[in-house]
């Protein structure tokens, strides 16, 4: 059980996929203008990551080493199709907002990376912990970015037509935060803050330049 919690906690703290490892950046920067849309993206990623991790872990003795990447991709693509069709059916507005980012979950390196680095070598019990931990770590970071951007950029946070926070009238929202350049700049400051905190707490320097690549041997890192 301790091992399970250990694996679960890693994704939430020191191995956070977004702010420490810096993988899966594209959807993060692109959709984080609205908290509710971002919430459903995070939920979709959490679902796909957890289910595909568990399934790949269950199948791990049946998947030949040589064709493992295509097999991972097929498993991931099937779960993404489930999400794609469900959102289209039940939440059409959110689906329209997320647009191309739902099919692009397939090529999100967090998912393929965890399948390759963890789920393929570990039992389903631990793969579940890893999927949940990494998924929640991703969700936490992307929701933080979305909340900051929506609050600064529009002066209020709206979740499914309910206003959660509203800044006073005199606040003039700088619209640039909602635009594309704003995403880069806000994210830059957030990771700078987090790396400063990490250095204080764990005396650990973070931030090698992000890498989301498959090396020649086929390893995702």
């Amino acid at each position: 059980m301790n091992e399970w919690i250990g694996v679960f906690k890693r994704g939430l703290s020191l191995d956070n996929p977004l702010v420490v490892l810096m993988i899966g950046l594209c959807p993060t920067l692109a959709v984080s203008t609205k908290l509710d849309g971002t919430f459903f993206l995070a939920l979709s990623v959490l679902f796909v990551l957890t289910t595909s991790s568990v399934l790949i872990s269950l199948l791990r003795s049946a998947i030949p080493e040589l064709v493992r990447i295509p097999v991972f991709i097929v498993v991931i693509a099937s779960f993404v199709t489930i999400v794609d069709l469900s959102l289209q059916a039940y939440l059409p507005d959110i689906y329209r907002f997320l647009g191309v980012w739902i099919p692009l979950i397939v090529v999100n390196c967090i998912i393929l990376g965890r399948a390759e680095a963890f789920a393929y070598h570990n039992p389903p019990r631990l793969a579940l912990a890893d999927g949940l931990g990494m998924g929640l770590g991703f969700a936490g970071a992307i929701l933080l970015l979305a909340a900051v951007r929506e609050l600064i950029g529009s002066g209020q946070i709206v979740f499914l037509e309910t206003t959660l926070i509203e800044l006073p009238q005199w606040y003039r929202a700088p619209g640039v935060v909602m635009l594309f350049p704003g995403a880069f700049i806000v994210f830059g400051f957030i990771i700078a803050a987090i790396s400063a905190i990490n250095r204080r707490l764990y005396s650990r320097t973070t931030h090698p330049v992000p890498a989301c690549t498959i090396t020649e041997g086929g390893d995702v890192r």
Binding site: F184, I185, G188, I191, S195, A196, H207, P208, V209, P210
Partner: peptide, 15 residues
């Protein structure tokens, strides 16, 4: 120092 590496790259990309 605290902006070195990735953070300053992001801000450059923003500009």
């Amino acid at each position: 120092a605290f902006m070195k590496g990735a953070p300053i790259s992001f801000i450059t990309a923003g500009l």
